[in-house]
Structures are given as C-alpha cells and as structure tokens.
Design a protein around this nucleic acid. Sequence first.
DNA 1: TTAAATGCAAACGCTTTGCAATTGA
DNA 2: TCAATTGCAAAGCGTTTGCATTTAA
Lengths: 138, 138
Amino acid sequence: MSCHKILQEKGYRLTPQRMLVIEALHNAESHISAEEIYEQLHARYPYSSVSTVYRTLELFKKLKLVTETDFGEGRVRYHVAEKGHHHHLVCRRCGKVMDLEESVLSSLKDTLLRDFGFDADLRHLAIPGECSKCRKKE
Amino acid sequence: MSCHKILQEKGYRLTPQRMLVIEALHNAESHISAEEIYEQLHARYPYSSVSTVYRTLELFKKLKLVTETDFGEGRVRYHVAEKGHHHHLVCRRCGKVMDLEESVLSSLKDTLLRDFGFDADLRHLAIPGECSKCRKKE
DNA sequence: TTAAATGCAAACGCTTTGCAATTGA
DNA sequence: TCAATTGCAAAGCGTTTGCATTTAA
C-alpha cells in the first residue's frame, strides 16, 4: 500500500512537502536522517523548513509508515517500514553498517517472549561491535 | 580493582570531583545519568560544574571504568563496569526496565562471531518492546 | 470555507568547548 | 613547580514549539 493512499485514507493532507519527504525516504539506499531529508526537500522547495520534516516524520511514525533506528550517532535515522525489517551490525571503528536478516534474532525474540513475557521489538536493532576487518588490523 | 587505584596507576589525578563522581556511580542502584551525578556532586561541592561530570565520564569510559547505555530517553546512562554486564528489556508503555542476565544473549554473540566475523558488544544492550503487564492490559 | 499544515524564529535539553584560574602530585 | 584539571559561560547540536500565515480538500 502506498504512503500517499494511507495518508489520504486517514484524512491527512497530501502536501508537496510530505510527498517530497516520502520520496526522499524511498530514494534513500539506506537509513536517512531528518537533516538529509531536509536537504533534499529544501533543494526542490526552498521555502520549506526543518520543522516540517520533523513534524512529518512524527506523523509517519504514528502511522507506522517509517521506523526509527538509533545508530549511536547522536541523531536518529529513518527507514520506510514496508521495505522490511532487518538488523544492523555497526562497527565501532570504521563505522561500517552490516545488514542482518530478521531471522537471525527470531530465536531471541521467542526466548524473551516465552521466558519473560516480553514482546521485544527487534525491528531495526543496531548492535555495536567490531567488524572482522578491523579486528584483523588490531 | 578500585577505580581510585586505576586512576592513580595511569597517572590521572584523584580530585575530589572525580571521587564524588565515582561515589555517585557506585551508590546508584541502577543506571545513572550525567545530570543525576551532577546533582549529587553539586550538593556536596557547590562550585562544581556539569562539564566536569561530562569530562570525568568521558575519561572513565576511555579507561573502561564505566559503560554507557542508551535507553532511548534522549540522554545516556552510566553504570560501573565492574558491577557486571547485563541487558535490559525496556517497556515502551510503562517505561519499566527489566534486567536480563548476560547469558541470555551469549548464543547470539557466538552466532554473530561465527557467521559474520562480527565481535558484538552486547554489554548493556537495551531492547525495546512491551512487558507482560502492559500486553495484558491491551 | 476552514481546519490542517506550514515557515520562521526562538527555545529546548543534553553535551561540548575555550579560556583563565586553580590544584594535585 | 607546573601540567592536569577545573569552573564558568558560551556555543553546539539535533529537535521541538508558538504563532501568524498559507493551503489542501
């Protein structure tokens, strides 16, 4: 289901700013920050503002159109929800981010639910550590 | 090994401010924020400043005396490293934090190392989700 | 027509920094 | 003694907010 349709169905306005935010999110190869979205929006729509981007992202989060991931950079990154869930191995040294299939953590999710009654949200979990290349250098 | 000794051995000065930061970290039942540490420091040492707390925590991180955990509150919390490692299940609704033994994630760590050559740092991982109580209410 | 959405600027909360004064070793 | 450490104030950063104006439906 397209983001545009969901907005309209729920009675939200389809403004050019929102469409450009959606476009930036979809064009992003990977996770994109609010500032980066704003750069793209502003390039095409000079009188736009960052606050619109933040307000739009907040709305999209509420509608579950996007997910947020904290890679420990002091800012948060966004990702279109329908692109699917996966996890990230973030190298502390070189900063490289490896994607990891959702299935790798599924047994953990099961364990937490079974043993602790905790329904873990493991979408877009960012796991810090050191990648193999950096470990070899050491 | 005490924090005091480690500081001295590595040639760092043992200032009253640093001792009070160490004390605050040790007295904390759980993870403590920089601001909370500062409150305790300032109560006993009125002319202290937050920047000292941040600089001290940065030093302690470098010396691996403390670990940092991001509970998604927009600030980071600190924990004495020697108190041992554990993970956290953070309920998105009620905010409750459950502690989880390190062993629960050890198989995940092994998998990541074996299959991806990634040395994951799973100390003080914070996993978001919903606790059993909140799930029952729904 | 009109409530929803925007732009702008100012404020926010946490953290960092420059610099002169202080202090532990 | 003197480099390490501090306090202070100001700035930095990502994010949020108040309010008057604009706009999609």
